[in-house]
Each structure stands twice: as C-alpha cells, then as structure tokens.
Nucleic acid binder design. Structure first.
Length: 270
DNA sequence: ACGATACCCTGATGGC
DNA sequence: TGCCATCAGGGTATCG
C-alpha cells in the first residue's frame, strides 16, 4: 500500500537508474493499465528521462521532449529496475528497456495504472488539478482552509487526496495518534493551533518513514527491490486491541471513512 | 454539492 | 488437504 513515504522512496531509487538514459523499447503486456496515448511514443520510447516527479502518491516520468508518463501504484503496484535477463514476475504489465536494464511496472491487483500526457502542463491541468497540496510541503494555513470547508471527520478528510495529497490509511492513523487527535473529530472544528501541530507532526512522521525506506506490510518494495522497515515503528496501524504504547489501554478499532481505523480512545480524546 | 457506499482486483488467511 | 468466505484498501462511479 504505497503512500507518500513509499512512493518517495520509489522515486529516489528510480533516479539513479533512469535519469539521462535513453529508452529504446517499450512493451505493453496488458493494455488496459495504460490510459491515453498508449503507443511507444506516448510511453517515452526514444526519449531520455529528464526528471522524476512526485505529487502525493503519484509519480511522473518526464521525457526530454516534455512528454509525461504518470504512474499510480494503487495498492500493489511496483516499479522495479532489473537486468533484462532477470526472470519476469507474474503481473508485469509494462516494460521499458534501457541500456543494460529494464524498468518494469507490475501490479497484481491492478488498482494502479499509467496515464500518458503530451506535456507536463497537461498532467498538471488535467490529472493533478484535483489533488490537494503535497503532504510534505503543505502549509497549515492551506490545510486549515480546506478542512474548514468539509463536514467530514478528520480521518476521512485527511484520506481525501483532494484536500491533502499523499496520506493513506497507515499514515493517517499514525498521525492522529502522534498528535493525539480523535479520528471522529469533525475536521472543521479543529483550531489553528491544532492544525499547526498536526502539520508539524505530519512532516516529522513522513520524514522518518521516508528515512526508514517506508513501510512494507506485504509486498511494497522500492525500485531496487528493497523492503521498507518503518512498519516496526507503527504505534496503532495493525495493532487493534493491543495495548496502547502510551497508556497501555486496549486500542480501539472501527470503520471510519470506509477504512479500518485503529486509535486509542484514552489518549486521543474527542 | 457533498458525503456515504459499492465496486474494482488478487492474495493471504482462517474456519470447517 | 482442500475449499470457501472474508478481509485488505486507493480511487472512482453512483446514489441519495
């Protein structure tokens, strides 16, 4: 379940193997994961990649000619750099060939996908237009404006990529525990000081998770195939009914915003 | 217009 | 051992 820290690690580990190298062949093994210009040129064939960007949980490979390939990993997607002779795992849907290596998009569940754009501006104006600011760079005043406009609880609001981009179920639960906010708290009732605190805790949480290589629960790996280790520092996610690390009371569990939610009803006061 | 819900999909898991 | 039901969840479509 790649969220911002995992996607950022994919981005960083892709850079060394991709930037400035020419793509000389693209093979699409499952065409329904690619949207837009699905031909080789649309997928950057013949191009060198000049930059790799991230917004929230989405990545964009930017070609020298300005063409863009946006990749969303969904639940089980992975972008892996491998030697061409290395055996190809099941559910490999797209292969980019570069000198001495391949970039492979694999995604068993196919919640992820690939979208092509003839220019970066098209990506910004179409696909990324509806995303909120990135969770690593959002300012508290901006988040406050967005939260004031919704009647949903804070958990559901933080999961909404249109409000803030990059958080998923793991890091929202960890964040709310970290700053002692109750997931059921109506988002619009949060005070300025509380939101400033939330943003501070969020940056710290995400930076630490990135430094640990992200969280690997089942199948997340970075572009080199390495797993993350931040899961060992989770304090609430995946710990339903276990004792709270702060007060030792049983952690609560419920469905909030359609997602399994774990919190401490003692430490995270409504 | 907003918010809640169903659905997409596969693999892991647990019960019988 | 094998089979089936259940669960996980990011995003989108649909309904109220």
């Amino acid at each position: 379940m790649p969220e911002l820290p995992e996607v950022e690690n994919v981005r960083r580990t892709l850079c060394g193997g991709l930037l400035g190298r020419p793509i000389y062949r693209v093979r699409v093994l499952r065409s329904d994961v690619v949207h837009g210009q699905t031909g080789p040129a649309g997928l950057l064939c013949g191009q060198k990649i000049s930059s790799i960007e991230r917004r929230g949980k989405q990545l964009a490979l930017v070609g020298e000619n300005g063409r863009c390939v946006c990749i969303h990993l969904g639940m089980t997607g992975a972008l892996v750099l491998a030697a061409a002779r290395q055996s190809r795992p099941e559910h490999t849907h797209v292969i980019w060939s570069l000198p001495g290596r391949q970039l492979r998009f694999q995604d068993p569940r196919r919640f992820g996908g690939i979208w092509t754009f003839s220019h970066h501006s098209q990506l910004s104006e179409q696909r990324w237009r509806n995303l909120g600011h990135d969770a690593l760079s959002i300012r508290s005043c901006e988040l406050m404006k967005r939260l004031a406009r919704t009647r949903r609880c804070i958990k559901a609001a933080l999961l909404d990529q249109g409000i803030i981009a990059g958080l998923g179920n793991i890091y929202v639960d960890e964040l709310l525990f970290s700053c002692r906010l109750n997931p059921f708290c109506p988002a619009s009732t949060l005070q300025g000081k509380q939101i400033q605190r939330l943003v501070r805790h969020m940056r710290q949480l995400l930076r630490r998770a990135i430094a640990a290589g992200g969280s690997t629960l089942r199948d997340y790996v970075d572009a080199h195939g390495h797993r993350g280790s931040y899961q060992s520092q989770h304090r609430v996610y995946g710990r339903a009914t276990k004792p709270c690390v702060r007060c030792h009371q049983c952690l609560s569990v419920a469905t909030v915003g359609g997602r399994r939610t774990v919190w401490c009803s003692h430490c995270q006061i409504p």
